[in-house]
Design a protein around this nucleic acid. Sequence first.
DNA 1: ATACTGAATGCAAACGTTTGAAAAAATTTT
DNA 2: AAAATTTTTTCAAACGTTTGCATTCAGTAT
Lengths: 343, 343
Amino acid sequence: MNSSRPVTIKDIARRFRCSPSTVSRALNDHPAINEDTRKNIQEYAREVGYQRNEVSLSLLNKKTASLGVVVPTISNYYETAVIEGLHTVLQPLGYTLNICVTNENYLLEKEYLAKLLSNRTEGIFLSVSQETYDSGYYEHLESVILRKTPLIFIDREYEDFETSRATVDDYHGAFAAVEHLINIGYKKIAHLKGPNGLTVSEQRLKGYVDCLRKYEMPVLDELIINTNFKVESAILPTKRLLEMPVPPDAIFGVNDQVAIGAMRVVKDKDLKIPQEVGLVGFDNSPISAYTFPSLTTVSRPGRKIGMEASRLFLNQVNGSGDFSHESIVLPSELVIRESTLRI
Amino acid sequence: MNSSRPVTIKDIARRFRCSPSTVSRALNDHPAINEDTRKNIQEYAREVGYQRNEVSLSLLNKKTASLGVVVPTISNYYETAVIEGLHTVLQPLGYTLNICVTNENYLLEKEYLAKLLSNRTEGIFLSVSQETYDSGYYEHLESVILRKTPLIFIDREYEDFETSRATVDDYHGAFAAVEHLINIGYKKIAHLKGPNGLTVSEQRLKGYVDCLRKYEMPVLDELIINTNFKVESAILPTKRLLEMPVPPDAIFGVNDQVAIGAMRVVKDKDLKIPQEVGLVGFDNSPISAYTFPSLTTVSRPGRKIGMEASRLFLNQVNGSGDFSHESIVLPSELVIRESTLRI
DNA sequence: ATACTGAATGCAAACGTTTGAAAAAATTTT
DNA sequence: AAAATTTTTTCAAACGTTTGCATTCAGTAT
């Protein structure tokens, strides 16, 4: 059934009773080839739909022009934005992106990295899975380092390796968000935090905590509740918060999804936003501008992160002499909208 | 700088003063290899971090185990769900997914397909770009067909080719949505449609139109307005609708994003949902359940589509004898929520 | 006629791996 | 000790392409 073997240079050579070298040169417009020969061969090649076998070329040149992108998920606005950013820069340069989704799973991550190396990928963009982060097992990265395959961390970093990384300044973003709430006059600010162990979760939590401390407000454990970044994971925690004897008057969600989940619960309780409860998210996802009320949030430039990460990669590849390992931290910006617009 | 050439079988052979064949067999646990030799070689290989060069194997076996996924965008819930579905089925079978984003651009799509073929991809999942669809140029697919590379259409189909495809029943989903609005008692139903030319847009529009006709309601051009699937593209059209002398009392959005945009505008005008204006979306994206009010929508099983598409691919590959071209149409289901819960 | 130039083509090796068949080495049987 | 058998290893080809160097074949200058 799959009988139609792709046409090769040898096939063409046989047809013209010449050597493969001649065909190769003809197809590549080598000057030493007779004009007629060239034309005939090129025409015939087009006719039979010849297409260069890049696999053999990869083997010969030890260049694959393919890059690995290993991420925990792609069902998020932010992650897809990052990929888009990578794409924007790297596609025009001829690179192919190999996107691998780990589902926050250590074993899968390990497997993917091994596979990418086996496939002689020329560079890897990695946002480590939560399991990896939790466990602290980073042996699977050793081989990447050993092979000197450029490795760029995205967001979730690992400090023991000398690698480049591009991250967003989660800490200051969170800090600014909470400071904004305090400035407006909210007195009891809760935080729906992300999964334990992840840099993003921890950094945002730290921004929240440090800001409260700076303004000498108490940091209460019962006001810090876990979520898994998804809308529905915010529902129960928010309910719990609002049923406290003295409920919080503001909620800082670890991302927009969670904040929107909280918004729903607040409204179900017939509490006014922002008058009775203030709400802040994180990400500045497209939808955050169109909820009712619109959501105050912290922008997180995913596209830019992708583009910066590409730049870091290219620096390493083109870099003369030593690798120049760089750490890029993009600022995150507070975007004030209706959900905190207390008058 | 990139001085650390990966260790090859030849390197190991030299080290043990034996032939590459022996090393290869030792590494693959071939029975004809002496136990000691095997152990020594395997241990050494592990030590120096040997990793099989899959590129050379691909060349030898004419198998790449890589599949192309060509989609217009990945910044959508639905598309990422499809990819997740593909992933779920194909990753465990050892396939690598090569995700290519065309940005609805014909030239890029063409380029990607050529590249995938050159890289000897073993199958291609394609959701054609809008430009392709509009222009009707499908020549770039000829070579895929010619090479008998399994080609699975996702969503947007092209009827001139004998290929498999997996799509959602947009037509009946839309029909059901509008019928539901009519049943509840809405009298003047507008439609925020998707970009012209795309199957999804057209099918949903057709469902809308046919349903109105069935119930002998007028189909008014001024109630059908274009959007580009994004939230913000719904804002102006909805404003225009609501400023009509006799505004519509229900709006059917081509997707959830658009419906949520409309929701925002309706609320800005202080109109009650669902009492004064009914709203329906399409996709059943996670957020649609948590807007306020929650959004009635039509489910669109992206994950399932991905899994079905995988199945179609596997059928073709494993299929004895002729290709069995199949067309899978998954049903879409109405999910009734608060935005149409008129009492 | 002979040597020299230049154009056009072919040869062979290389990239890293696998594999059937042949060869070599070790072991057993007579 | 020779023959037969078994175990272990090597050879060589193959996958498709490129490329430096050699070769061939004209044509031109001496």
